[in-house]
Simulated assay, not measured.
Amino acid sequence: MKGYRKLGRNSAHRKSMLRNLVTDLFREGRITTTEMRAKEAGRIAEKMITKAKKGDLHARRQVLEYIFDEDVVTKLFEEIAPGYEDRNGGYTRILKLGPRQGDNAEVVYLELV
């Protein structure tokens, strides 16, 4: 089994796209995207929340390597992560919306629980 999905992109484009999805998820709380993108972005978001729960400077710097928007990182550490203090994983949820009109791709909500 592969460690990740390639999503039909080269590595730089894929990394940039997933960064943007995760940043928007933390900024908005819920995003609409395709199922495969949501699964990959959800994996990364779970890891970011787990790091943010530690709350120390090293964890903040590690998250800032991935999420460039400092306002979003501040929100993650001060608002989002403390809400999951008693939860061991499972911070995101995928809700299916149905196929997209143009290409029949499965569209979902990716949201924070």
Results as ranks from 00 to 15, higher is better:
94 I>T: 02
42 G>T: 09
65 E>S: 07
20 N>R: 14
17 M>C: 09
33 T>D: 14
62 Q>A: 06
53 K>E: 05
54 K>E: 09
113 V>H: 10
5 R>T: 12
52 A>M: 05
39 K>G: 09
105 A>W: 02
29 G>H: 12
57 L>R: 06
75 K>W: 01
51 K>W: 15
93 R>K: 10
23 T>D: 11
107 V>L: 13
51 K>G: 08
7 L>K: 12
18 L>Q: 04
21 L>F: 13
49 I>V: 13
50 T>I: 12
27 R>Q: 09
47 K>A: 09
50 T>G: 02
8 G>M: 13
62 Q>E: 07
99 P>Y: 14
7 L>V: 14
96 K>R: 06
2 K>Q: 15
1 M>V: 12
43 R>M: 15
78 E>V: 09
15 K>H: 12
54 K>M: 03
88 N>A: 05
34 T>K: 09
14 R>G: 09
37 R>M: 02
52 A>C: 09
100 R>E: 12
52 A>I: 01
86 D>W: 09
42 G>N: 02
12 A>L: 14
34 T>V: 11
10 N>T: 15
15 K>G: 10
98 G>I: 00
73 V>F: 03
39 K>F: 13
6 K>D: 12
59 A>Y: 00
18 L>G: 03
103 D>E: 03
55 G>S: 04
21 L>S: 11
29 G>D: 15
79 E>W: 02
22 V>K: 07
112 L>E: 12
38 A>E: 04
52 A>N: 05
30 R>N: 14
13 H>N: 10
107 V>I: 06
78 E>F: 01
97 L>M: 08
107 V>Y: 14
38 A>I: 06
32 T>D: 08
8 G>Y: 12
16 S>M: 05
60 R>S: 11
60 R>T: 12
57 L>H: 13
83 G>V: 01
89 G>I: 07
58 H>M: 02
1 M>R: 03
16 S>K: 04
111 E>F: 00
7 L>R: 02
20 N>M: 12
108 V>Q: 01
26 F>L: 05
7 L>S: 08
54 K>P: 00
66 Y>N: 04
49 I>S: 01
74 T>R: 15
100 R>M: 14
108 V>K: 00
28 E>V: 03
4 Y>L: 09
58 H>D: 07
26 F>P: 01
50 T>E: 04
95 L>T: 13
56 D>L: 03
68 F>M: 06
6 K>H: 10
92 T>C: 03
44 I>W: 02
41 A>M: 03
33 T>E: 02
37 R>H: 15
106 E>S: 07
26 F>A: 02
17 M>Y: 13
18 L>P: 10
55 G>E: 08
70 E>C: 14
95 L>F: 14
